[in-house]
Amino acid sequence: MIPAQFDYVAPTTLAEAIAALGAAGEDAKILAGGQSLIPVLRLRLAFPTTLIDLSRVSELRGVGEDGDVLVIGAMTKHSDVIEDPLVRQYAALLSEATSTVADPAVRHRGTFGGALAHADPAGDLAAVALALDAELVAEGPGGRRTIAAKDFFVDYLETSLSPDEILAAVRIPKLTGDWGVRYEKFNRVAQAWAIVGVATAVRTEGGSIAEARIGLTNMGSTPVRPHSVEAALVGASTREQVVAAAASAADGTNPPSDLGAKADYRQHLARVLTARAVSQAAGITS
């Protein structure tokens, strides 16, 4: 199928992009990697008047460090995130989860920032951003501001970015110490969206869990952070203790009932997969 007509601008600096977004009016859309947007346009499910393509804004690409924080440009491609040595060292969970996004060709175009700004609760990376306490850096005509991940995802496909703002970068506190990570993605076929995904990073001390971070994919209209499970996991050193802690992983969640699965099954999966993800991340086998 074929998209409806639109205008197209390809700024080369973030300032130009913000100006273009302001000039284009409310029906403009940002084109990042386009791997979700272009199929939507082809199916004529959206009719933007203008696309502002960020792919030529080089300042939005790449991974850097700012002290204890990893700074990932919003336009950094998934394939670059996966391979990046800094990401692998300090945010291995992001690298692992990103390698499960769609397929290699899509990962060559799709971007980290684009995926987060799209805010699809079935997307894999929002839960990771939430679990890792990422901060999202937005820039607009009024300047730059930083939004905590927990405040960024507002609802299904909705973020706290204002219409004149562009997501510029994602700041992820480095994980240092003895962290194990696991992204447990449950889907029916390889290229399907996650029915449920569980992102976990676990720090162990002397064989027991000292700290756990968990983000759940597709368990509600936004990614979910089950803090009670994280708290209950502290001190766990056996599989049985992990399973007990994970039993509350779905508490208070309101997952969708759709073609993929009914809500109660998703909640069941969240418990099972949380236990598995945490056990694997922590190296707890029995």
Binding site: R188, V189, A190, A192, L259
Partner: peptide
Amino acid sequence: LTTGSLVDYLVPAAPD
């Protein structure tokens, strides 16, 4: 038809 595309109609790929 709620399985109106390859997103929802699950044709298996090589890993499946």
